[in-house]
């Protein structure tokens, strides 16, 4: 059968492959090449070595965006996962209406980033107006605004994954711990958490890469204001490309750096999950 199927390459694999080449592979390779050149469109590139990378790292706004992104990611990952895990433990008890609660908590996840940004801009500005300011008055407001927004969006999603993890724990184990006289906290620490570790890994990395790559919400909520102090990496790269003529090369270099950082996160996850699988 394999030989027979091989002849059907043009039907089975070619359409996807062509689209993949056009939309991803060629632009990716071009992107790497262009990061070492000076250009305004793809066709007028001149080789300049590492100039763009030097320019990128000399750019205060880029470093500021990097720092803001890291700070934001740490706080977002911790808060989202704490809330999501707590809510998952509440929803896995035999309480009426769990399905309805699950439906409600998950819903914000389906709403797009631009819409989410404007919803929370309204609410946060509505609170801040009592103090005579708006969200773009200080980077602090933008920071915590983004944290609240992403908690609202992602808690339900992570909660679903945690619920699946908790429900896969055999009930006998929890019962046995109870009979052995383990306290609730000890059961959580020594039975529940080790057994939902795979779910925890998934959620940590999902929130990590989601927070790190955030764009739409950032654009709609503050658009980087005040004066780009709340721009995250993705938004800063976008602004470099489309808002600063002559900086296209630096923008592409920033994008390559961004890709490498995201790649490191993904690679760490891969190694960690592999090791866990071997252990179990």
């Amino acid at each position: 059968m394999e030989k027979n199927l091989k002849k059907y390459f043009a039907i089975f694999a070619l359409p996807t492959l062509i689209a993949f080449l056009i939309a991803f592979l060629i632009p990716f390779i071009l992107g790497i090449v262009l990061s070492f050149t000076e250009f305004t469109t793809v066709t007028d590139a001149k080789f300049v070595g590492l100039d763009n990378y030097v320019k990128a790292f000399a750019d205060r706004e880029f470093l500021n965006a990097l720092w803001f992104t890291v700070k934001y990611t740490v706080v977002a990952v911790i808060t989202i996962n704490l809330f999501a895990f707590t809510m998952a433990t509440l929803l896995t008890r035999k309480i009426k209406g769990t399905n309805l609660f699950r439906t409600v908590f998950f819903m914000p996840n389906l709403i797009g980033g631009i819409v989410l940004g404007y919803i929370w801009q309204l609410i946060i500005n509505g609170v801040l107006i009592n103090f005579g300011v708006t969200i773009t008055y200080s980077a602090k407001y933008g920071f915590w605004g983004l944290i609240i927004l992403m908690n609202w969006q992602l808690i339900g999603y992570m909660m679903i994954i945690y619920i699946a993890g908790i429900q896969s724990i055999p009930e006998e184990l929890v019962e046995a711990a109870k009979i052995d006289g383990a306290s609730k906290i000890n059961t959580l620490r020594h039975v529940t958490i080790p057994l939902v570790m795979p779910a925890i890994t998934i959620c940590l990395f999902l929130t990590l890469s989601n927070s790190f790559k955030l764009f739409d919400q950032n654009l709609a909520l503050t658009a980087g204001g005040p004066s780009n102090k709340t721009s995250m990496l993705a938004l800063d790269i976008f602004n470099t490309f489309y808002g600063r003529p002559g900086y296209e090369g630096a923008g592409q270099a920033k994008a390559v750096v961004f890709f490498i950082l995201v790649g490191i996160i993904a690679f760490t996850q891969l190694v960690l999950t592999r090791r866990k699988e071997v252990e179990s």
Binding site: F20, F24, L25, I26, P27, F28, L30, G31, L34, V42, K213, F215, L233, A234, I237, F238, F241, E248, G251, Q252, A255, V256, F258, F259, V262, G263, A266
Partner: peptide
């Protein structure tokens, strides 16, 4: 391709 962020290929 799953791990490459959109900004990497956005322009090209």
């Amino acid at each position: 391709s799953m791990i490459v962020p959109f900004q990497m290929v956005m322009f090209t």
